[in-house]
Design a protein around this nucleic acid. Structure first.
Lengths: 227, 227
DNA sequence: CGCTGCGTTGAGCTTCTTCAACGATCGTGG
DNA sequence: CCACGATCGTTGAAGAAGCTCAACGCAGCG
């Protein structure tokens, strides 16, 4: 079964037997979203959670005057919107497809039963939520304790790591989205990119980034330096 | 047994039998901390988690230049530092006793076994982590999308609710701690308190707060108004 | 060809922080 | 019991960081 094959590649289902995967597959709905399509809104009734199969999803909050803060960007294999499954009933944020997406949807009710019956699944879910908490606490730290250049430096180093610690790579999201993720606006981000370039920390050409001075970036990320 | 009595009042252990509580009680260490005492530091090896029995604990991050961001304040009945139990091995923040505290400590190893054996406990823990995630996402929203007056207004309304939606109450933490929780500094907080007073939104006398214009505060909290 | 969305740049302004000084309160030791 | 220091909160003046608003270039695409 094709669904089971996808499930077997998801960390959340690590260590489960084929039988158990089949039970899970039975409650899945397979869904498609177009680029830019809204998956759910802040405050909607939370009837289940999702796993990304292909494409990417952004989860974000919006202020009354329209400013956006991206909380998280999820790619293939990642679950999201688990919170309302276990606590409360509303989605606490909005979710939107960044690109054409295929998602698996797991209805709350069926899934909770599976967790009860399956300690490994419960442990995997606990690990997943814990990781999420850690990422959130890093985001809080960044927003509150670092200035924008420091946040950008951290992000670039993170991207470099993700690509095998090489010094040349591409931004994985549009700059305007990156601004929203870093808790700032495109204008400010653009100025900081320019400044990082003129200080020879990086070379930048559209979405292409080359790290010229890794140590300099690290100092920025740690808040030991100013731009 | 005295420990069991305390455990039975903790949400995390709701729905567990006396026997199960006894099993849990067996792995607990009973600990005392003085006001201001450090419980663990960011990066320490995370060997287990805690539940507050009496007193209060703040969990916080510190920037290189010493600014503090309080992530959370925990009172009696609340578990904290669960993350390293399920994911990774280090505490991702610092914890300090705000007052004289009694804490129960649960070593990671023993507790994970209990969770495996006990689906209700697993569900309770999932609910607890989910709630934490929701609180964090609110904090992120506040830090990124609201200005300080809006954050303070939200906090005052939250305190009022906690006290049964009455209009007069006391701040539950020192103003300098509140500043750190709201992602700002005491000077800024003080100015905003003064301004809220002169605009007749609140009356303030030391730690005593009286809400004079609830609607005005709500508008501030929603970002629909400026001070 | 013109439109639309994205990114960039400049000027001005708001918000918040920094630095410094000072008053009040409280607990401690003389 | 008073004096002292420490901590906390408040206030003022100056400065920095980031945001708003506006204009413009550029690429992709109908």
């Amino acid at each position: 079964m094709e669904i089971r094959k996808h499930l077997s590649q998801v960390d959340l289902f690590n260590g489960l037997s084929l039988q158990e995967l089949d039970e899970i597959a039975r409650i899945v709905s397979d869904k498609e979203y177009k680029k830019g399509e809204l998956i759910f809104s802040d405050g909607d009734d939370g009837i289940g959670f999702y796993i990304v199969i292909s494409g990417r999803v952004k989860v974000f909050k919006v202020s009354p005057d329209g400013k956006e803060q991206i909380m998280h960007i999820f790619g293939p294999g990642h679950p999201f919107a688990e919170v309302p499954v276990f606590e409360g009933s509303c989605y606490p944020a909005n979710a939107e497809a960044l690109e054409r997406c295929r998602l698996f949807f797991f209805p709350k009710k069926g899934f909770v039963d599976l967790i009860h019956a399956n300690p490994s699944l419960a442990m995997n879910m606990l690990a997943s939520l814990s990781q999420r908490l850690k990422q959130f606490s890093n985001l809080i730290e960044a927003l509150s304790l670092k200035e924008v250049p420091g946040r950008l430096a951290s992000y670039l180093l993170y991207l470099s790591d993700k690509n095998g610690s090489i010094d040349e790579f591409e931004l994985d999201i549009a700059k305007s989205q990156l601004a929203s993720f870093l808790g700032t606006i495109p204008e400010t981000l653009s100025r900081i990119f320019t400044k990082m370039g003129s200080k020879e920390l990086i070379r930048i050409n559209g979405p292409q980034i080359a790290i010229l001075d890794r140590t300099g970036l690290e100092d920025l990320a740690e808040g030991e330096t100013k731009l």
